[in-house]
Computed example of a mutant assay.
Amino acid sequence: MSADIYKKVRANPKFAELEGKRSRFALLLTAIVMASYYGMMMIVAFAPEVMRTPISTGSTLTIGVPIGAAIIIGSWLLTGWFVNRSNGEFDTINNEIVREATK
C-alpha cells in the first residue's frame, strides 16, 4: 500500500473506533484470563488446602482438578468469542475503512 492510503486509513474516524473497540475487548478478555489463572495460583500458594479438598468423601479427585479444567475451557471459549467478534464486527469495520481509503 502507498503512504497515501495509510494516511487515509489513519485519518478515518472508523479506524479510531475499530482500534478502540478491539483494544478494549482484548484487554477485557486478557484481564479475565489473567485474573482466573493468577487467582488460582494465589490459592495454590496461600491456601493449598482449598485445592486439595476432595470433591466427595472418599474421592481421590480434588476440587482443584475441575477448577483448573474450567479455567482452561473458559480460556478457549473466550478465545472463540474474540475470533467470532473479530471475524464479524471488526472485519466489517475494517472492510469499510479499506473501501473508503481506496476510493
Results as ranks from 00 to 15, higher is better:
61 L>W: 02
25 F>D: 04
73 I>F: 14
30 T>H: 13
27 L>V: 02
5 I>Q: 12
51 M>C: 09
97 I>H: 13
74 G>S: 08
44 V>D: 00
53 T>D: 05
65 V>K: 10
30 T>Y: 13
28 L>T: 11
87 N>R: 09
8 K>Q: 09
22 R>V: 01
31 A>C: 10
89 E>Y: 09
48 P>E: 11
75 S>D: 15
57 T>E: 01
45 A>R: 14
67 I>A: 10
82 F>K: 04
36 S>E: 15
38 Y>K: 15
9 V>M: 07
37 Y>C: 13
63 I>N: 01
46 F>A: 09
64 G>S: 07
99 R>G: 05
56 S>I: 08
52 R>H: 03
97 I>D: 01
33 V>L: 12
101 A>Q: 11
73 I>N: 08
28 L>C: 12
103 K>N: 14
19 E>M: 15
29 L>P: 01
15 F>A: 12
22 R>E: 00
6 Y>R: 15
31 A>P: 06
33 V>Q: 14
75 S>V: 02
82 F>S: 04
76 W>Y: 14
35 A>F: 14
43 I>A: 11
87 N>K: 07
70 A>N: 07
52 R>T: 10
68 G>H: 02
23 S>Q: 07
76 W>D: 00
19 E>Q: 11
72 I>Q: 00
64 G>C: 05
93 I>A: 05
39 G>F: 06
98 V>I: 10
54 P>K: 11
65 V>R: 06
11 A>E: 12
91 D>Y: 00
17 E>L: 15
15 F>G: 03
18 L>K: 02
6 Y>F: 15
64 G>N: 01
77 L>A: 10
68 G>V: 03
3 A>E: 12
62 T>L: 09
81 W>P: 01
101 A>G: 13
